[in-house]
Design a protein around this nucleic acid. Sequence first.
DNA 1: AAAAAACCAATACAGTGTCTCGACATGAGA
DNA 2: TCTCATGTCGAGACACTGTATTGGTTTTTT
Lengths: 230, 230
Amino acid sequence: MTVWDRPEPPTRPVPLDRERIVAAAIALADEGGLEAVSLRKVAARLDAGPMRLYGYISTKEELFDLMVDEVHAEILPEERPGDWREALRVHACLTRQAALRHEWLADLLGGRPALGPNALAVTETMLAALDGLADIDTVMRAVETVSAYFTGAIRREVANLRAERATGLSKRDWQRASGPHVTKMLATGRFPTLAKLVHDGTEVDAEESFATGLDWVLDAVAAKLARPEA
Amino acid sequence: MTVWDRPEPPTRPVPLDRERIVAAAIALADEGGLEAVSLRKVAARLDAGPMRLYGYISTKEELFDLMVDEVHAEILPEERPGDWREALRVHACLTRQAALRHEWLADLLGGRPALGPNALAVTETMLAALDGLADIDTVMRAVETVSAYFTGAIRREVANLRAERATGLSKRDWQRASGPHVTKMLATGRFPTLAKLVHDGTEVDAEESFATGLDWVLDAVAAKLARPEA
DNA sequence: AAAAAACCAATACAGTGTCTCGACATGAGA
DNA sequence: TCTCATGTCGAGACACTGTATTGGTTTTTT
């Protein structure tokens, strides 16, 4: 028996930890979407049997939670910006950019309460940015409102992006893109305003659209912070 | 051979159509959540083999789309209310109520573009309510912003509701509820503002919270409709 | 050195969405 | 009325999924 046919040592099991598992899952999700994440594939990527993961994770949902929290680490702002408005604004934009990097995040955002350490830290900095400008309840409401906005906006943007991607690279060709179905619907004349919009509406950049809507909401928050009785 | 052991006539196949399929799927989802909806179970509820559904539906995702559109029929307002603000407001509230009736809707909302006939009709009435008050692009942005808000808000509300339900009927006991984890996190002192909020924050009714945030956003929209240059 | 504990891979199970194919029923043509 | 073509339907198969169990192997403790 020479060196060559001596069998490989039995693949010394790489020590595993949550970080590595989550990283593998994120990589998988980045490549093939959330549905490409299966415990078997995650384990395979770490040269381990599927059951090994259950030492570090008790269910697949928990893995998803960990993935979300890991992305929240990317969102944590480096230094606290001066005013609350900038703080909320950049947080919203950072979240959006994270969701564009990891599209699967859109599927998970808001789906479960984010209670991981990084998510809590992010929430803390948002609250801190507003702390003192109004009573704590108003502050909370402000954060919740802004969060609700950008959660929804991000979700819609990613949904549209996928739809465009799926129906060939059509962007403005909403009608032609999503099959003859919408075209026919619009042709019925039952949706005049919508038809007008599709016909006359300006093509707007997704990022700009996100930013404008965000600014509106921030304006509203500013008004309430100034006159909390309203 | 008596009447009793004469075999049932071979279960004359009930004529199927999309409506019945979608209704069965919705019933299933209402009872056991989205994950309780499997093509096999839907088919079983209609006394049919699983493959039979593929005559009316080409994929499970399509079934989900149909379910969402069916719920949009419940949302369609009966008559058009006077001013645009009321129109947007009741639409948001109706959507929220629909999501409380069909919690699975929260999982699907915003996940894909809603292009079904009912969804289009709903969008049409929202656009129509705003039509003429500003250029069509601003109108669209307004609708999108409000939609983004209530999509996100509904999602969060349902997520919290489920979390509360899962961790025993705890509402205010956010900390104790979600396990010792959050409690310990707050005890670290790394999240002072959050801790203050949990300690001093007022318990707020979910519906009221939704409505206030919505009013803020509507205020913002009103301001932009008045001065579209801003 | 022996015993105990911890760990881990293989197997198993019940379920999923979807494809393929053979049987059966129904309609048309002779 | 008999036959043949057509098309619809369901049973089975396939490749997966998340998770429980189990029995062997390694590591630690006594």
